[in-house]
Design a protein around this nucleic acid. Structure first.
Ligand code: MN
Ligand code: MN
Ligand code: MN
Ligand code: MN
Lengths: 220, 220
DNA sequence: GCAACTAATTAGACTGTTCTAATAAAATCA
DNA sequence: TGATTTTATTAGAACAGTCTAATTAGTTGC
């Protein structure tokens, strides 16, 4: 089995790889807040364990084995977040840090029970998909709120980042997953959007905020 | 803060101290399944951190600080066990190993929420008292089933050990906390007890089993 | 009271995880 | 292309946590 630490590295590689299919030492270092030489030596360890493919001065990629193990930790993380929100009454802005710890608990029964009590959920409280028991994860194709045009009507489906600050900003504005949003206008200069939802008075969201919100076209 | 490992040592010292007020290296070594020299060096670390008083070749004792920190971990352990049984549907024989991991989670909110959802329980699924937020624990004075005499009628209140095997043995015999037990006879030779409860046919329990069962006189 | 046994400690090694400082390779840019 | 900047690696140290082997201190049994 892998250590707690190795699991956190695997997860970080997995998340960074989602975009480009690979991750480099520098990004991992920033993401994990661990200095580059430390990351570098861990890359060698993970390569020895056949969890990643690593060649000097090249970005790393997860092996099939590494990818599966990463996905299974993410599964435990997201099931935990869902359990904390649905069964224990936490807010979506309060659960990431706790899940970051509980994801390392070794007990398949524990997570199987959560899964069952939750009714085998497919997404976590932030709209991210929960990988299945085999580590298979299916991303529905959402697009960024940013990329919408004036007049579009969309459904808020997921957030791409789950920092406290960001989620609290959404809380204050009563923006939740499932909210139907109408884009009233987009500021050409800085991308600030004015949107309307829930029969509230129009709300303005910065480009940075809109970049972290994923939406689907309101069809079905 | 203390590491995961230090917390486990503190807890072990606390539990061993319950009997004699102190713990020696040898017992700790056996209990934690860690070799004596390792325990010895940890004793020095804990002493440096003012969590125990340690003098060479003498048993160790927890300081007030150490005792409080140990009790707070035990609090987290027992709240977790209670939560797993009451809110997640686990058996009392399945929860110790999971709680052994979750007790190290750092989030006062998480355990406060468990406590609240459980209605601020005073005992865990094995009948052991849950220390309060200040680390204060009150042991009700129970006695061992072993010490009962023929004709006594008592209530099953707690177990002193929570190994799978032992708890499963009790499961099979439908012996649960709260069960009212009548002692039919005690074998003089080996201390085997014949008991009656729940209108079942009489059941025989070995001395070793009776030594791990705590009971109260059936009065109030 | 000494021998034998048990408990505790010391010495030294090893793994895992982290760091800083120095160096080297790769990428960028002018 | 050559200089500069960025990224990656190496070298060496440190701490946490573990072990085995050797030694020493304390206890027990004749
Ligand atoms: Mn999360
Ligand atoms: Mn984590
Ligand atoms: Mn327990
Ligand atoms: Mn533990």
């Amino acid at each position: 089995m892998n250590t707690h630490t190795e699991e956190n590295y695997l997860k970080a590689i997995y998340n960074l790889s989602a975009v480009k299919g690979e991750a480099n030492v520098n990004e991992l270092s920033r993401h994990l807040e661990i200095k580059m030489p430390t990351v570098n030596s861990m890359m060698k360890r993970l390569a020895d364990k056949k969890l990643i493919v690593y060649e000097s001065y090249k970005p790393v990629r997860l092996t099939t084995k590494g990818e599966k193990e990463a996905a299974l930790i993410i599964r435990k993380h997201r099931l935990t977040e869902m359990f904390l929100v649905e069964k224990m009454g936490f807010g979506w802005d309060e659960v990431h840090g706790i899940a970051e710890q509980i994801e390392h608990v070794q007990s398949s029964d524990f997570f199987a029970k959560m899964d069952e009590l939750l009714g085998f959920p497919k997404i976590d409280p932030h709209g991210s998909p929960i990988p299945d028991k085999n580590g298979k994860m299916e991303w529905t194709e959402y697009h960024k709120l940013n990329e919408c045009k004036t007049g579009d009507i969309v459904i808020f489906k997921a957030v791409t980042h789950s920092s406290d600050d960001f989620l609290k900003l959404l809380n204050v504005r009563e923006l939740q997953l499932g909210t139907i949003i109408k884009i009233k206008s987009v500021e050409a200069f800085d991308g600030t959007m004015t949107i309307e939802y829930n029969k509230r008075k129009p709300e303005m969201l910065s480009h940075l905020v809109c970049d972290r919100i994923l939406v689907a076209n309101r069809k079905k």
